[in-house]
């Protein structure tokens, strides 16, 4: 396959950035999108040019690092897929592919396609955890959890924090991410101790980071590589209202 790539190049956070066009003449349709970028970078290195910086880690679709906005969609055209699991057979010979970094005030570009997603870490740090007793481990089966709650918590826990929801949302809202984390813990008995405090703090931190607010377009859910449902956002709204109005911490 012959592929023309229009890739966003930006030296650092202060650089204003621009698109560069590259031609790749021997792309296999069995390559993953990131492998195609590896080929591009080898080509750039042999030409004595600066390779394209992009985030990647596991290349198995579970770490959430590979953030690329491909042809106007987070993680490219396939549903429920991270960039590393997107394969070149999704494209046609002769295609031009536009690749941009996540765009959000809360995710500043570090270099080329890499963005700083530590805003998510700070949201997690204020409340995305549970208190546990030290000492001997309790028998796991001694805590009963309704099947439906366990399933919903597990589905929410599938969130890999990739930031595609923020990248896709017209408001750069982080509600899908935060609601997945809030839901995962609020649904389980282990998460009850900090339940109200958690949702208040995580939402306050989310707002402080400069994410936009949710207008329920549903774009995040459609583009989420892990299929996190916006039912979680409704649950977080409920949790937050409850935490603000009902007594107790």
């Amino acid at each position: 396959m012959k592929i023309t790539l229009k890739v966003w190049r930006q030296k650092n956070g202060k650089d204003s950035g621009r698109f560069e066009t590259y031609q790749l003449n021997h792309v296999s349709e069995d390559m993953s999108f990131l492998e195609m970028f590896d080929v591009l970078n080898e080509q750039l290195i042999t030409e004595n040019k600066e390779p394209v910086a992009f985030d990647h880690d596991c290349r198995e679709g579970i770490c959430g690092m590979c953030s690329m906005y491909i042809n106007g969609r987070a993680h490219g055209p396939w549903e429920g897929t991270t960039t590393c699991q997107l394969h070149m057979r999704a494209f046609n010979d002769g295609d031009t592919i536009v690749v941009e970094p996540w765009r959000s005030a809360a995710f500043p570009v570090l270099k080329d396609l890499m963005v700083d997603r530590s805003a998510f870490d700070r949201i997690m740090a204020v409340g995305g955890f549970v208190s546990v007793n030290t000492g001997n481990a309790v028998d796991a089966n001694s805590t009963l959890i309704p099947k439906e709650d366990a399933d919903n918590a597990f589905s929410a826990a599938a969130c890999i924090g990739c930031g595609a929801c923020v990248a896709t949302c017209k408001n750069s809202s982080a509600m899908l991410f935060v609601s997945a984390k809030v839901s995962q813990l609020a649904l389980l008995p282990q998460g009850q101790v900090e339940r109200k405090d958690r949702v208040r703090k995580m939402v306050a931190q989310m707002d402080a980071e400069g994410f936009g607010s949710c207008t329920n377009t549903g774009a995040c859910e459609a583009e989420c590589p892990k299929g996190i449902s916006i039912a979680n956002i409704a649950r977080m709204n409920r949790e937050y209202l409850g935490a603000a109005i009902l007594p107790g911490n």
Binding site: F19, R103, K170, S173, G212, T215, G218, A219, E223
Partner: peptide, 26 residues
């Protein structure tokens, strides 16, 4: 305020692939 949350716009965006136009133009 929501517009300010994305100061640099995407060069290419396929919003119709993931949301209804009414929801984006309230």
């Amino acid at each position: 305020r929501n517009r300010k949350a994305r100061p640099v716009k995407y060069a290419m965006s396929q919003a119709n692939a993931n949301s209804h136009w009414t929801s984006r133009n309230m």
